[in-house]
Nucleic acid binder design. Structure first.
Length: 287
DNA sequence: CCTTGTGTTCTCCG
DNA sequence: CCGGAGAACACAAG
């Protein structure tokens, strides 16, 4: 379940490892994952290099050296991008893939890239919700325009956050999950932010006082930065670009802790369904 | 049956 | 009747 902190961790890892390397081979093992005839997808990429990696919300945007096309990668629920250097690939003394420490490619590998220095980038996705897509600048701008304010950007101001929340009738959990209003938060960080702010998930956005909105604004910023420092949350499936787990799961206060003791008051953490999602909260600490 | 991110579709309200 | 908001559904696979 990669959300903003996990996707950002992957982005930072990859920037230092794959930029400017020539793409020599692209293998598509699952046509559905690339939305097109695999051959067409491959010819867009082979011979080029990635010149930059950006992120909007949970979407990764790889710029291509043709200065025309972009590769979009969405991990959805179980997607992983794992980089292996030539050394990593041949760990164990064998010269072929399948002998690296991660045994990649494996049955969840949907696409992989080979670079001119022998390194590989694997896109693994157990549930096949994730995708890779080539787009031109116009389509990229259309997609980017659908995203709301980004918690790590200069646009994420108290005033803009108030504007996003103000006067909305839907509950605050659904609002925080809405990528067109605030981008990058998913189920885990929304539950954690609402606990930190002491606000119940079912409260309608319009019922929040300015003080509560400002508190929420503050805790989101801190939470996201802390989670990135810990290289994200591995609850089930998430791995960073080095194939490692993030450690922020150890810091979660409500997510995945239903029926356990609240770390603040000792009461019982409850789990209900809100906005169609499993929702964890403390009835005593959250009003 | 449960899990979740997002695009689409449906419904409601003014 | 239009537009926007919000809710519900579809998707996948363990």
């Amino acid at each position: 379940m990669p959300e903003l902190p996990e996707v950002e961790t992957i982005r930072r890892d990859l920037v230092g490892r794959i930029l400017a390397k020539k793409i020599t081979t692209v293998k598509v093992l699952s046509a559905k994952t690339v939305f097109s005839i695999p051959k067409k997808f491959v010819t867009h990429l082979v011979g080029q290099s990635f010149t930059g990696i950006d992120r909007v919300g949970k979407l990764l945007i790889f710029s291509l050296s043709d200065q025309k096309n972009f590769l979009l990668v969405h991990l959805k629920m179980t997607g992983q991008l794992i980089y292996l250097s030539k050394q990593g690939l041949v760990a164990g003394g064998h010269s072929l893939k399948k002998h690296n420490i991660f045994n990649l490619p494996d049955k969840s590998t949907r696409v992989y890239f080979v670079f001119s220095d022998g390194s590989h980038l694997f896109f693994n996705d157990q549930r096949r919700f994730g995708y890779l897509k080539i787009v031109e600048i116009l389509e990229l701008e259309r997609i980017k325009s659908k995203y709301g304010i980004e918690p790590l950007s200069p646009n994420f101001t108290k005033a803009n956050f108030r504007l996003a929340v103000k006067g909305r009738k839907k509950n605050i959990k659904a609002l925080l999950l809405d990528q067109s209003l605030i981008s990058g938060l998913g189920n885990i960080y929304v539950d954690e932010a609402l606990f930190a702010a002491g606000i119940r998930p079912l409260r309608t956005a319009s019922s929040l006082s300015f003080k509560e909105i400002d508190t929420l604004y503050g805790v989101i910023e801190v939470l996201i930065r802390r989670a990135i420092k810990h290289r994200g949350t591995t609850f089930n499936n998430y791995l960073d670009a080095q194939g490692q787990k993030g450690s922020f799961a150890l810091k979660l206060k409500v997510y995945g802790r239903s029926k356990e003791e609240c770390l603040k008051c000792g009461g019982e953490i409850k789990k209900v369904k809100v906005a169609g999602r499993g929702t964890h909260f403390c009835p005593h600490c959250q009003k």
